[in-house]
Simulated scan of single mutants.
Amino acid sequence: MKKRFYFPALTAFPVSIFLLIGCQQRSSQSADGDGDPRFEGAISQPLVSHSYTADPSAHVFEGKIYVYPSHDIDAGTPENDNGDHFDMRDYHVFSMDSVGGEVTDHGVALKLEDIPWAGRQLWAPDAAHKNGKYYFYFPAKDKQDIFRIGVATSDKPTGPFAAEPEPIQGSFSMDPTVFTDTDSTSYLYFGGIWGGQLQRWASGEYDPQGSSTDLENDSLPALTPKVARLTDDMLQFAEAVRDVLILDENGQPLLTGDHDRRFFEGSWMHKYKDNYYLSYSTGDTHQLVYAIGDNPYGPFTYQGVIMTPVIGWTTHHSIVEHGGKWWLFYHDTQLSGGKTHLRNIKVTELQYDNDGRIRTINPYRNADPI
């Protein structure tokens, strides 16, 4: 099997101001992407152009869209397969009244030095609202260089957020996403292989000498995302972590070698017409795909592709309803001209067929993204 290079999905850079979606005025950071023919057919333009942003988790709070991305910086960290060059150090929160309106950068919401247990690498986050408070979930490597998931709280959706002194007990890996069901029960989904370290937990315990990835074991069931119900205070797991099983059309678990459909990272959960949609990145084949189940735990049956590959290697997304439409938030590397660790968030409309299937989106009408 050919070697597959992986650079995990994750974060961006400071400066606060108002920005217009599809802004045509490029900052110095955006110059590298100007005139790049690969982006000429892009179906949407960067939401933020004054800094690099990635992994957008979008939510509607009190009728307004809030986006919680990671914050890419050019830290000068050498590039490698474990993603050490994704050396993000803080988070910003962005908001807009509606898609197409002004985008506001609310400044630094949380930074590395204010997280007592964290050592480095603030990767893709998420947020939730409950009990009159806002909760911000984030992965970071602890002082032993093991990814854990932390939580921080605020009275405002924009922060600043105050981190709990310790990570969530029993948490590991990366890419946390919170789903709150119609009965007000909240669940945390997480996990990502390779640089995200999920494969090091295959035995139930952390194995620092474990396989660098499971991508070579083609005939075995693929590693799955994880899920746990959250406590009422949203600060801990209320139960043991469970596997999120993803099945093929014959009811069999997707295999490791099924690179076009298997889970890799970046899971997201949303509900549409009483069905639960688990979406995620296939990682080394760079697609956003989805599977459907009848409850938050699954199992979920694979359905198809949401979005074909973006330029920039990694793919990470969120799906939210607002203004009577559904929206897909995602990222590519238009501003940096294709540099994998300097990304920009985007948004486009998501549409369903009458039977609930999601229509596949090509992010570039006139260009080959590979």
Rank of each mutant, 00 (worst) to 15 (best):
H270Y: 15
T333A: 11
Y302P: 04
A202S: 13
Y206G: 14
L220C: 13
D84A: 04
K156C: 14
I65A: 00
L19S: 07
V320W: 00
D84N: 10
S281I: 10
W268T: 13
S154F: 13
F13V: 11
K156R: 15
R200T: 07
Y52V: 03
E216C: 09
A75V: 04
T213N: 14
I168P: 08
K271L: 07
P176S: 14
L19K: 12
Q29C: 12
F86P: 00
P78R: 04
E79W: 03
G63H: 05
A124M: 01
D258M: 08
V99P: 00
C23W: 08
M234P: 06
L215N: 10
G83V: 00
D243Q: 14
P78F: 02
T177L: 04
W117D: 00
D294N: 12
K3L: 07
G22Y: 11
A140C: 11
L245H: 13
N131W: 03
F5Y: 10
R26S: 11
H317W: 04
G251P: 12
R229Q: 12
Y134V: 00
D142M: 12
D294F: 00
G192F: 08
G63K: 07
S336F: 00
V227Y: 03
M174W: 06
F94W: 04
R229H: 06
A127I: 03
P221Y: 05
E166N: 14
T282F: 06
D207H: 15
D232P: 01
E164T: 10
L342H: 02
D353Q: 15
T158G: 13
G257S: 08
V178T: 14
S16H: 07
S70V: 03
P116H: 01
Y68R: 01
P69L: 04
R89P: 01
G150F: 06
P221V: 11
G159P: 15
S171A: 13
L10E: 09
T11G: 14
Y276D: 09
L20C: 11
P125H: 05
A118P: 05
G338S: 03
T153V: 15
R38W: 01
Y290G: 06
Y272Q: 15
A162W: 05
V99Y: 01
I311P: 02
T315N: 14
I65G: 00
G195C: 06
C23T: 14
A12Q: 08
P296D: 03
S171P: 06
P14A: 05
M96G: 02
D105I: 00
A42W: 02
S186Y: 12
H50E: 06
H71S: 11
